[in-house]
Design a protein around this nucleic acid. Structure first.
Lengths: 219, 219
DNA sequence: TATTTTATTTAAGCTTACTTAAATTCATTA
DNA sequence: TAATGAATTTAAGTAAGCTTAAATAAAATA
């Protein structure tokens, strides 16, 4: 499998998992930074290889083999992130950058060795679930975006699903780490913002960030 | 830089370092498992990019930029080998297999982090020198191939420069590891073989292996 | 030195993964 | 429902990295 093919199915998979799933061709092409024409081409080719279900003018979906491949790539990505975080202490942003490359040239054998070394973790340092060797993946339905959290409630940070350096630096410097608790002061509707309290600090967060922060009710 | 380009300059560099340096086009093509025509093509292209010195019908040599690139790739390869050996305990053969892939998708930043984590080692687990960030590389002239060692002398194993599983498994199971000492009993000329003694065991080694085992006089 | 063998190059062609530009289909809305 | 605009597809073309087959140059040998 080439890097292009792996990224293509990976992006479709990730898009299909979002609350607002959008797997239209132009969306996929946009994320991959290729032309729509190139995406059409790839879609047809991968359909002939039974990786993608492709009907002209319809959104793309993954066939079984394509989903399997996407999960394999995602597994390698997240195992690398966890491994680099633990051994080399790279930042949340940096592990993503490096894993984005390494995921494509990692053998199943090496992935399993890393998994074993780490004690088969269920999530990576961003809180994203790590698919098992057989493709099984935990999908905790109790997670909600901070933008949808209810005011006057305690929550625990469960996932930081951004990929930009600014986002991670903001989170790190404001104590928004996996496992930390926060209090939702209030939700503001226009522009969509959320006021929260962490460790005595009050922070006003724009939707751009609250959509990327997943929380679950604190026990 | 693509994988093909990196491998091309890497192979030229490694060939140029051998005692019997052979950088003819067909030799390079053979190692890379591509046709001579493909190698000619690549040589011309890389010459135009100032990576390779190419004169029709002449052996290939590296230009400064090409040597720099080769050393960068080699550095990443050997850092990965050392890292995987230390953290994951992979075998001497396995670290080579994995590093062969990872070397191409590793940022300079990540390589430096690995280097720092390892305490800037001078050699990898096979005894091969690790180029520094600036391209400096140790070339210990006191190493000789076991096939050229003098009979009735003590030596220390300094490098195991093969890449096949069989070779490493043989060395491992016969106590031929970096740093272990051996006594050269005698050299046999036809067929070229070497009789050695390690830890009470006597072993008769064929040139196929003794050419790959580098030793230095034991102190 | 002439001939043969071997190495290298040239030529033509293929696949992957892209591009831009034009044509077509779909969805929306007047 | 007909027109408009956006999304998608088709068409034509490019670069990288290969292939095989034929032509040519270099090296070896008689």
């Amino acid at each position: 499998m080439t890097v292009s093919v792996e990224n293509f199915v990976k992006v479709i998979y990730k898009q299909s998992q979002l609350s607002k799933a959008d797997t239209r061709l132009s969306t996929i092409a946009g994320i991959l930074n290729i032309s729509n024409a190139a995406a059409t081409d790839m879609a047809r080719k991968l359909a002939s290889r039974q990786l993608v279900n492709y009907t002209k003018y319809k959104p793309l979906t993954l066939a079984d083999k394509g989903k399997e491949l996407a999960l394999k790539v995602l597994r390698k990505h997240r195992l690398w992130e966890t491994f680099l975080y633990k051994t080399l202490n790279l930042s949340l942003h940096q592990i993503h950058i490096e894993a984005e490359q390494l995921e494509h040239l990692t053998s199943d054998y090496l992935a399993n060795q890393i998994d074993h070394y780490l004690g088969s973790p269920l999530t990576d340092p961003h809180g994203d679930p790590i698919p098992a060797f057989n493709g099984q993946i935990e999908t905790d339905q109790s997670h909600t975006q901070l933008s949808n959290a209810k005011a006057a409630n305690h929550y625990t940070v469960a996932r930081l699903s951004g990929s930009e350096r600014d986002f991670f630096e903001f989170c790190t410097s404001n104590g928004l780490m996996i496992g930390s608790t926060l209090w939702v002061e209030k939700q503001i509707s226009s522009p969509k913002m959320t006021e929260i309290k962490t460790n005595k600090k009050k922070i006003l967060l724009h939707e751009d960030f609250t959509k990327l922060i997943f929380v679950k009710p604190a026990n």
